[in-house]
Design a protein around this nucleic acid. Structure first.
Length: 166
DNA sequence: TCCAATATTATGC
DNA sequence: GCATAATATTGGA
């Protein structure tokens, strides 16, 4: 499958988005690495360019703690069925709301699969849009986060969600 | 096929 | 609080 990489400038740094033929398939937090290639605007199809435009807009809105009204199409076909079910649940979480891993497990009909839910969250290729940061441990403590707990706390703070200190 | 690793949780000390 | 067992899913040997 052909993948296109594009960078997303935000007030928090430069995110990296990857698109497949079906839509956005991966999103990474600022790497710290400067510039890099990622041939922006070079040989990108109009289709992808439009997706990217929506991604940039939605991401910037989300980083301000607001609810983006439009999302780019996402391609989650690389995940397992279990993971896709988890991600779908995550997308139903409203801004400023949080869920525990146990709650998520319950909503997919497998209350005992809490640990596996954690794994699915970690495997989530698109943070922010698939709000894996709104999933906390049982007593509302931070669990973990792919891009670093620092980001998780910051995202939740901007949404107005309360998190217990570690 | 089996074994180890996990962004958990409940329980016991 | 910290250590431990139980649990579902995944990825690699």
């Amino acid at each position: 499958m052909k993948i296109v990489e594009l960078t997303i400038p935000t007030a928090d740094g430069e995110f990296l988005a990857r698109y497949s033929a079906k839509g956005l398939c991966e999103l990474w937090f600022p790497d710290g690495k400067k510039g890099k290639k990622a041939g922006d605007g070079a040989q990108v199809s109009n289709q992808i360019r439009e997706w990217h435009e929506r991604t940039v807009e939605a991401l910037n809105i989300a980083l301000k703690g607001r609810d983006p009204k439009t999302f780019p199409p996402v391609d989650l076909s690389n995940g397992t069925e279990f993971q896709q079910r988890v991600w779908e649940v995550l997308r139903t979480i409203a801004m400023g709301r949080t869920l525990s891993y146990g709650e998520v497990a319950r909503r997919i009909g497998k209350p005992k699969a809490v640990r596996a839910v954690g794994g699915a969250c970690g495997a989530n290729p698109i943070p922010v849009f698939v709000p894996c940061h709104r999933v906390l441990a049982a007593n509302q403590r931070l669990g973990g986060f792919s891009g670093g707990l620092d980001w998780k706390r910051r995202l939740l703070a901007r949404e107005g969600a309360e998190v217990r200190a570690e």
